[in-house]
Amino acid sequence: NITNLCPFDEVFNATRFASVYAWNRKRISNCVADYSVLYNFAPFFAFKCYGVSPTKLNDLCFTNVYADSFVIRGNEVSQIAPGQTGNIADYNYKLPDDFTGCVIAWNSNKLDSKVGGNYNYLYRLFRKSNLKPFERDISTEIYQAGNKPCNGVAGFNCYFPLRSYGFRPTYGVGHQPYRVVVLSFELLHAPATVCGPKKST
């Protein structure tokens, strides 16, 4: 009989979020998941679920829940969905086509923008091939755009693969920082350890 609540607040209220190319993952297990707390949290810009209804989450049990978190621009949030393409979905964070879970995003301009620009948040701009679902690539190898080998030196046709967002408070909404948490639900042939409040007695 599990009684402790799942530590969703640790994920959602973290002081610093990860850059999207180096997205953070927390495994959540052996706890009671009260999703209504999240669902009623006012400032969400997006709360979209795939393969599961957000209002039914509290009735369900899962083997594991993974909480992935990172920061992207407002106009990139739409790429955090199954079957998407674009710089983020291709080179930074890719969801599987059969994704079961929820994508939760909110504007973090007050936290993550600075006058003069916040350059701490990076994304991958160049990559030889697209990421596989949930693949994480933190390499900083110089990207070779031409035929000539770069030998690890940036220059003509040789690019550092990461780019900084440089968030400023005055940017338009599409270019403002958004914090994103992706909850993915794993249902294995194993005992369920993460259940909603109704199922955990």
Rank of each mutant, 00 (worst) to 15 (best):
T3I: 06
N4A: 12
L5C: 08
L5I: 12
L5N: 12
C6K: 03
P7F: 06
P7D: 14
P7T: 10
F8T: 02
F8N: 02
D9L: 14
E10I: 06
E10Y: 05
V11R: 02
F12P: 00
T15W: 00
R16W: 08
S19V: 01
S19F: 01
V20N: 04
A22K: 11
W23Q: 04
W23E: 03
R27P: 06
I28W: 15
V32G: 05
V32A: 07
D34V: 01
D34W: 04
Y35E: 06
S36A: 09
V37P: 06
N40I: 04
N40P: 08
F41C: 08
F41W: 13
F41K: 11
P43H: 07
F44N: 14
A46I: 14
Y50S: 01
V52A: 04
V52C: 07
P54C: 05
P54D: 07
T55L: 12
L57N: 03
L57S: 04
D59S: 13
L60G: 07
C61D: 09
N64L: 07
V65F: 08
Y66Q: 06
Y66R: 05
Y66V: 10
A67D: 01
D68Q: 02
S69W: 02
F70E: 03
I72L: 12
I72F: 01
N75P: 05
N75Y: 08
N75I: 08
N75C: 11
E76S: 01
V77H: 02
P82D: 01
P82Q: 01
Q84P: 02
Q84C: 06
T85Y: 06
T85N: 09
A89P: 08
D90V: 02
Y91G: 05
N92G: 02
K94D: 01
D97S: 10
C102R: 00
C102M: 02
I104F: 15
N107W: 03
S108A: 11
S108L: 02
K110Q: 12
L111F: 10
S113V: 06
G116L: 09
G117Y: 07
Y119S: 14
Y119G: 15
N120H: 10
Y121W: 05
L122C: 12
L125V: 15
L125R: 15
K128W: 07
S129D: 14
L131M: 08
L131N: 03
F134G: 13
F134K: 06
R136T: 05
E141L: 08
E141S: 11
I142F: 10
I142A: 09
Q144V: 08
Q144D: 10
A145K: 13
K148P: 09
K148A: 12
P149G: 12
P149S: 15
P149R: 12
C150Y: 05
C150P: 06
N151K: 14
G152Y: 07
G152K: 11
V153N: 14
A154N: 14
G155Q: 09
F156K: 15
C158S: 06
Y159F: 13
P161M: 03
L162Q: 03
L162H: 04
L162I: 11
S164A: 12
Y165M: 05
G166S: 12
G166H: 12
T170L: 08
Y171R: 12
G172A: 13
G172P: 13
V173N: 11
G174D: 15
Q176S: 05
P177W: 05
P177M: 05
Y178G: 01
R179P: 02
R179H: 04
V181T: 02
L183W: 00
F185Q: 00
F185A: 02
E186G: 10
E186R: 07
H189Y: 10
A190I: 08
P191K: 14
A192D: 13
P197W: 14
P197T: 14
K199Y: 14
S200V: 14
T201H: 13
T201C: 14
